[in-house]
């Protein structure tokens, strides 16, 4: 079972993702509400996959990707983006994100992306 860390400042989104993931055979090992805590938790938990929101307080998703990549260059990170964030997603990819999802997304898409990496 793949372990997942959810990083998102919106409780609602964390909850929604957790529900989708747990329903589809992933193990959610942790949640974090900003990029900084996300990177910290990554170091503690070393999950197989991270879902990473982009717009967050303290440290945004791209900064968090950069930090996580320093901890583990092989880290698998899926960005959770919204319409209109093309540039940021691109930066996240350059920083090392594996793939991305665009809100609103269906359960199916989440599973597709997480299984592909």
């Amino acid at each position: 079972m793949k372990s997942v860390l959810i990083v998102d400042d919106a409780m609602f989104m964390r909850y929604t993702l957790r529900r989708i993931l747990e329903k589809n055979g992933f193990q959610v090992v942790g949640e974090a509400e900003n990029g900084l805590l996300g990177a910290q938790k990554y170091g503690e938990l070393l999950p197989d996959i991270v879902t990473m929101d982009i717009t967050m307080p303290e440290l945004n998703g791209i900064g968090a990707v950069q930090l996580i990549k320093q901890i583990n260059p092989q880290a698998k990170i899926v960005m959770i983006s919204a319409m209109g964030q093309q540039h940021l997603v691109r930066e996240a990819i350059l920083a090392g994100a594996s793939n991305f999802l665009v809100k609103p997304f269906s359960d199916e898409r989440v599973v597709q992306v997480l299984n592909s990496i």
Binding site: D9, A10, F12, M13, T55, M56, A82, K103, P104, F105
Partner: peptide, 14 residues
């Protein structure tokens, strides 16, 4: 403001 609206947008869209 930007961030909060962004979050609301995302959640509402979901």
């Amino acid at each position: 403001i930007f961030r909060i609206m962004h979050t609301i947008k995302g959640s509402a869209a979901m």
